[in-house]
Amino acid sequence: MSTIIVNEMKTVKTLNNIAENGLKVLQKGKFVIDNNSDHPDAILLRSFNMHGMELSTNIKAIARAGAGVNNIPVDTCTEKGIVVFNTPGANANAVKEMVLMSLMTSSRNLFDGITWTKSLENQGEQIPKLVEAGKKQFVGNEIKGKTLGVIGLGAIGALVANDALSLDMDVIGYDPYLSVDTAWNLSRNVQRAMTLDQVFAESDYITVHVPLTPDTKGMFNKEAFQLMKKGTQILNFSRGELVNEVDMAVALEEGTIGRYITDFPNEDVLKMKNTIAIPHLGASTEESEENCAVMAARQVKEFLETGNIKNSVNFPNASIPYVGKKRVTAFHLNIPNMVGQITQVISHFQLNIADMVNRSRGEYAYTMIDIDNHVADEVVPLLANKLKEIDGMVVTRVI
């Protein structure tokens, strides 16, 4: 299947409330926000569940103002040639602050202490005496000098690791996929763990910041808990499914795990001993929502106007500086001779190539070609239709 798209006024539909500063990125005159449109060029959303939603053939891009894309049918979008964006790092500071706050307050038993104090209501003048008599049950521990294990050193994990060092903690980090950009931002004082088992064995506290994949699902399980120090505290602000909850319940009951702090409560979690269940507030700040909205809108704007891709979860990242020349973009199967066939079509119209990039991701690839010479308006649809005929082409645009 292939669709042909040429320049026109772009319509963007939002499926959730998107921060106003994000919408402002989509400048008037070039974009129209129309939430009643059945055939938008792009969709902006946060947590709206798109599974089962009919996807118009006119949709070119979907941007999630947040990191997780479980609410988007990514595989279907890929088959239809729809690029899906997320906003990694835009909510990193908000989550980091929540992790560090939870780390300190749980260590000092602050949540339990506050709940107990509230129960003293209506005790009148006896409250100060009751507080002094009862406070010993909430004696906690300082985090200074303790070891924090950070699993996943992306945008959030790196911030947590660096700030934990500033709190005089020892920090050990594990991330086999650590990027060069993240490494530049990571303190040299973060100790590098060569294996997950090393983090499990050496940490007093463990915080996890990895995506949910078949490899990470249930990574906190009976076998992992057996390697940990007795009383280890685990913080999970990534995905609930990273934890085997049956094994966690047993480990908490036996005291192998001292406390489980999670941003993903459910019926089983709420029944667990020594658990702090937070109502998914990790990224719930006004600043975070605005950052995510602005980042998502900019990615959509850049893609619709230039074809450049950054932070896609299904297309390869690819970009060429846009200088106003006609640009051909093609999303196609990653098979031999696709680029050759595309350039042959361009040569057929006596057009010269000024610049080109080709990037692949699994079974698919993305090609952008800038045309050096002027392209007459009447040639654009002919060029687009010729590209459409290439076997293995999914979607093309002439910008």
Rank of each mutant, 00 (worst) to 15 (best):
N86K: 02
N17W: 11
Q299R: 12
R46S: 09
E253M: 08
M104I: 13
N352D: 13
Q344N: 13
D34H: 05
V395Q: 11
N109W: 09
I151D: 10
L351T: 05
A318I: 00
D163S: 15
A193P: 04
L252A: 07
T262S: 15
A201Q: 14
E125M: 08
V300I: 11
S288W: 01
V74C: 09
I371Q: 09
E289K: 13
N91H: 04
T78N: 13
M50F: 04
G124A: 00
I399S: 15
L242R: 06
K13G: 04
D370Q: 02
A318M: 01
G173L: 03
A67D: 11
P214N: 12
V313G: 05
K13P: 03
V6R: 14
A65I: 00
K271N: 13
N70R: 14
S238W: 15
V180W: 15
S2Y: 09
P176Q: 06
G29L: 02
L252E: 14
G392S: 01
T306G: 05
S47I: 14
A164S: 15
T14Y: 05
M101S: 12
D204K: 09
G362V: 05
I309T: 06
M9Q: 15
D197A: 11
Y205C: 07
N266G: 03
G22P: 06
T262H: 00
S360D: 11
W116D: 02
I399M: 12
P336A: 14
E286I: 13
K310W: 11
M368T: 05
K80A: 04
I18H: 06
M356A: 08
G362H: 03
S312L: 10
D247W: 02
R188M: 11
V210E: 04
Q191G: 09
S119D: 14
H332Y: 04
Q191S: 09
V394E: 09
I33C: 03
V269W: 01
E8L: 02
P128R: 00
E254A: 12
V394K: 08
E97T: 06
A384L: 11
G52A: 00
I342S: 01
F85V: 00
E305C: 01
L44H: 00
S107W: 06
G154K: 02
T329H: 08
Y322H: 12
S102R: 00
D377W: 10
L186I: 08
M101T: 13
L159H: 00
V171E: 12
W184H: 13
G140I: 09
I320E: 05
L212H: 12
D181I: 03
S312D: 08
V243S: 07
N314Y: 04
R397N: 11
I390F: 07
G154D: 02
I335V: 15
L44R: 07
L242Q: 07
D377I: 09
G231V: 02
P88I: 03
I261Q: 06
D181F: 07
A92R: 02
R259C: 13
S2W: 10
Q137G: 04
K388P: 04
V83L: 02
E54W: 08
K229S: 10
V171H: 15
P214R: 06
G392K: 02
K326H: 13
P381T: 05
M50W: 00
C77L: 07
M9A: 12
K144L: 10
K301N: 07
G68T: 04
A90F: 03
K388F: 02
R327Y: 11
V69C: 15
K135R: 15
G152N: 07
A384T: 10
A65N: 06
